[in-house]
Design a binder for these strands. Structure first.
Ligand SMILES: [Zn+2]
Ligand SMILES: [Zn+2]
Ligand SMILES: [Zn+2]
Ligand SMILES: [Zn+2]
Lengths: 168, 168
DNA sequence: CCGCCCGGCGTTACAGTATAGCAGCACGCA
DNA sequence: TGCGTGCTGCTATACTGTAACGCCGGGCGG
């Protein structure tokens, strides 16, 4: 019955060292691409870094604006192609209900992700709950349905935004 | 462990009488709106009927085109407002991963829907699996997350498209 | 009956999201 | 050197969704 705790903390407290959090993510990406023979070009690396700028989901056009280095503004295909590459290699996930992208904390491992999305602070936390996987797989099988892609996006309030303060 | 079968068949066979299927859906909608004091106007009813035209998810701009009765073409807000009304009253669901809408077979009851979406024939089947609900609620609670909206969209192949024919 | 309010609908205009298709360029390799 | 391939850039366009304003008709108090 899946009593295993998540292997990393859901949602980040004040003490979170985001600087190193991003550096680690980029290092994992470099490593994974090297092992796969995929090219993490400067542009792709920069986009990944921007996505990791926060733990919120980032919109493509915000990335586009952020890429604008003062001179000519970047064009949509630039960022969409980088995102497609990152997505193919599991370095980012697309959140369909937000039209936005979030960095994957555990790229490379075949994992079915479920996302907790806080509507208050915007933070997105990725889960890997075997119990949910199992329930979904069972029900799909019971309907004779052959699964290929599982989208689970859970909206609500994260612990920090939900808890103490006054109601409402 | 949720061994209850779904209360309606997932996916439709050749013998499906879609004419009456649509009529029943419209009758349920009329009834539900009457009970709620909501106004199922001719336009809204027509949009609902178009959504129910198939068991696939329908795009807003396809509805728009279908609404065009030869004279002046309908404008986006027309159909989006109708869809918003239908969605508020649970008569249709939005499939976020497709930017499209599908009719709800059981409107009015508080149900958390999971969707099985066939990538081959496009048919969308709505489930109400308590086991999935439960697994999701447990994991969210374990993270201290207060759920408000649960999006579960399962892509793959329906029984008819997956089964007999030659491989591939 | 009159005037008012309000919800539904129509229109214009625009914002936001995403892709097609072609050109230039750098690199590795024959 | 010449070529192919993959990355990036560009223009243009398609697709999705919303803001804001105004008209109209029906209900309701006066
Ligand atoms: Zn961090
Ligand atoms: Zn939060
Ligand atoms: Zn039917
Ligand atoms: Zn199918």
């Amino acid at each position: 019955m899946d009593t295993l705790p998540d292997d990393r903390p859901a949602f980040h407290d004040g003490g979170h060292e985001h600087q190193s959090c991003v550096e680690d993510a980029l290092a994992r990406a470099e490593d994974l691409c090297r092992r796969r023979g995929a090219r993490l070009t400067p542009l792709r690396r920069r986009v990944l870094e921007l996505v990791w700028g926060s733990h919120r989901a980032v919109k493509a056009y915000d990335l586009l604006a952020a890429l604008d280095d003062g001179a000519g503004a970047a064009k949509p295909p630039t960022v969409y192609r980088a995102l497609e590459f990152l997505k193919e290699h599991g370095l980012v996930h697309r959140i369909d209900s937000l039209n936005a992208f979030v960095g994957c904390p555990q790229p490379g491992e075949g994992h079915s992700a479920q996302f907790l999305i806080c509507g208050e602070c915007g933070e997105v936390s990725e889960m890997n709950a075997a119990s949910i996987d199992r329930a979904v797989a069972e029900r799909a099988a019971a309907s004779g349905f052959a699964l290929s892609r599982i989208i689970i996006e859970l909206h609500g309030r994260c612990p920090r935004c939900a808890t103490p303060s006054r109601g409402i």
